[in-house]
């Protein structure tokens, strides 16, 4: 089933036409070249393709394009222009929390969703917020620690 939709992608009004059942993940990567959105499993089990849809964290592999009419989609490419990103960037850099990097764009958006909902989280809340984003490299300590750092450094931003 084809559809024509209009949605906001990283702040820009965007028209799109195609199969309504197409995965947002594929469209972002193949048609908009937003390859910061990573593909790890295509079934919602790894979180590497996480994006924000109307400010809410979703797995872009499990979102059909037809669902997006009127929605705002933010990927890492849009988020990296924000002040909040800069705070997270410094925090993860200072803890060398990025290893292979494949989970990171999704992880960063999960962190943003968490901090937006809960600006001063506990370690347990941070870990819960990241629990849908698999990382095979780090053991999660450095990432969770960096998000806690960011929540303090970014006082007032979230």
């Amino acid at each position: 089933m084809r559809c024509e939709i209009e949605f906001t992608l990283n702040g820009a009004t965007t028209q799109w036409a195609g199969e309504a059942g197409r995965k947002l993940l594929d469209v972002l990567r193949d048609e908009f070249a937003l390859v910061g959105v990573k593909c790890g499993c295509r079934e919602g089990e790894c979180g590497a393709c996480s994006v924000l849809m109307d400010g809410v964290l979703v797995n872009s592999c499990l979102v059909a394009m037809g669902r997006l009419q009127g929605c705002e989609v933010l990927t890492i490419e849009g988020y990296r222009l924000t002040e909040r990103f800069k705070v997270l960037d410094r925090a993860l850099a200072n803890r060398s929390a990025v290893q292979c990097g494949y989970c990171i764009p999704g992880m960063v958006l999960a962190a943003e969703a968490l901090l937006a909902a809960c600006p001063r989280p506990s370690d347990a809340e941070v870990r819960r917020g990241l629990s849908g984003n698999l990382c095979r490299c780090t053991g999660y300590n450095a990432i969770a620690g960096a998000i806690l750092d960011a929540s303090k450094e970014g006082e007032g931003l979230w």
Binding site: M1, A20, G44, N59, A64, G66, R67, Q69
Partner: peptide
């Protein structure tokens, strides 16, 4: 009917005639 999509979208068939309920 397409509610959250989290079950439906695991399948790889983009031509399905979804009715979005949100």
């Amino acid at each position: 009917p397409y509610a959250g999509g989290t079950d439906l979208m695991v399948a790889e068939d983009e031509r399905r005639p979804f009715l979005f309920l949100h």
